[in-house]
Amino acid sequence: MLSEAAIKELEELRQKYPNARAALLPAIYIAQREFGWASPDAYEAVSEALGVPKAIARGVGTFYAMYKHKPMGRNIVQLCTNVSCMILGAEKLVDFLKNKYGLEPGGITPDGRFSMVIMECIGACGTAPAMLVNDDFYENLTEKSLEEILGKYK
């Protein structure tokens, strides 16, 4: 079940579009936030709220990389390794995350503090290497700055 606040948010969103189906992508975002990940229950809730069949909601949702189809850590480290970041050392940062935190691409730390996702260019190539932690951009990363930044996320 979605919270009352989420249902209200969804109703407002729905008004932006000529039909309910078009609100599907934003609705999955809301459900993902409510349930912690795009779980079967999250799709059930989306399907109910919009009147879109569950198979369709899930079929569409699984096409997109930003819906997470397994439980995630409390913080998501989203590190770009595309060309501009790669040639400026992003892979060293991948190794560093593995060695220092036991964090592998697609993986999660045992304490649930971090999940890690490899990103395909996040539009910060001029300040590479770059990452998003949850919704925050971090740029010009080094091993040292990466460690300091992650220290802020509990």
Partner: peptide
């Protein structure tokens, strides 16, 4: 005017895929 947020698919930059995605479908 409204913002519609994509969900991480490069192909949705192609204009007809973008339209599919805006309609609530796979891009």
């Amino acid at each position: 005017l409204a913002v519609h947020q994509g969900a991480g698919a490069y192909i949705c930059g192609e204009e007809t895929a973008l339209i599919e995605s805006l309609e609530g479908d796979k891009g």
